[in-house]
Design a protein around this nucleic acid. Sequence first.
DNA 1: CTAAAACTTCAAGTAAACTTGAAGTCAAGA
DNA 2: TCTTGACTTCAAGTTTACTTGAAGTTTTAG
Lengths: 160, 160
Amino acid sequence: MQTTRWQKTSLSIGDVARRTGLNTSALRFYEEKALIESLRTPGNQRRYARDVIRRVSFIRAAQRVGLTLEEVRAMLDDLPAGRPPTRADWQELARRWKPWLDERIAALERLRDQLSSCIGCGCLSLDSCALYNHGDAAGSLGPGPRYLLGDSPEDLRARN
Amino acid sequence: MQTTRWQKTSLSIGDVARRTGLNTSALRFYEEKALIESLRTPGNQRRYARDVIRRVSFIRAAQRVGLTLEEVRAMLDDLPAGRPPTRADWQELARRWKPWLDERIAALERLRDQLSSCIGCGCLSLDSCALYNHGDAAGSLGPGPRYLLGDSPEDLRARN
DNA sequence: CTAAAACTTCAAGTAAACTTGAAGTCAAGA
DNA sequence: TCTTGACTTCAAGTTTACTTGAAGTTTTAG
């Protein structure tokens, strides 16, 4: 474990793990998936540029709102290759991301409102109920678990 | 394939699949996970009560906002056993669910605002930046993919 | 009554996002 | 110098939520 003396120019995988809260195995996995990159020491150990922290943090933030790693990779591909991204580069990325996030929020709000008005409605004509419209955009998300940030129902129940 | 003559009292697995938009295999899987239940014909085929449609729709809706099947099962366990749930039962469930959904929406909004103000800030003191606070509640969600409803970044880019 | 459609079980496969373990190499402090 | 701790690769395992396929049975329409 290296102690920060002045300003380190390169970080070991353990350094990055500590600063991002991720496991080293996750970082190697991300590299394998071309989400991050590294140089090697003569002894074949990874050394990361400082901006990898920002990059990893972005990845995690994106995951939290429901993006897959593939989707995140696609977004990160828009960042310039070869040179470390500037503030403007990140801003551009954020700008592109925001409407997507806004849509996501809107969809969640729609669903909440639907549920409030529909789940309790007791309607017997199932066909007219928004809950039963399975033909909408969110129909087939594919396999695998999907969850977001926040509490589980258990947490909520425990709280009352 | 049975044609609805008057009002059927029990539904085959194919009926339920058609009405919910799910695959029959998914319905068997849900039953295995105790999310739904069925009776059997003398020939060992499944027959569902009509309220299974509502139940399945609820499951899908909950999944869309990010609940795991386990979490959904926990919520459904609050419904009365033995008798078909009444309108009041569903209302109660919706009531319990709403604040959770609201929290979720709020968290998404917080994240959006953080990103708008933070990603583009170019701050060099990483420690003070919200993006870099990996110690928050959403830190460890475990393995597996997580995604929600909505467009992928590709969709958004294609649209402009 | 018979053929086809729909159903049954069970085992195995898939995808995403990692983790774990084995077996060995590198780096840093005493 | 030596001994840890940190690192390396690679293969295999884990979880969630299903799907697919094989091999056989039931139901239903004609």
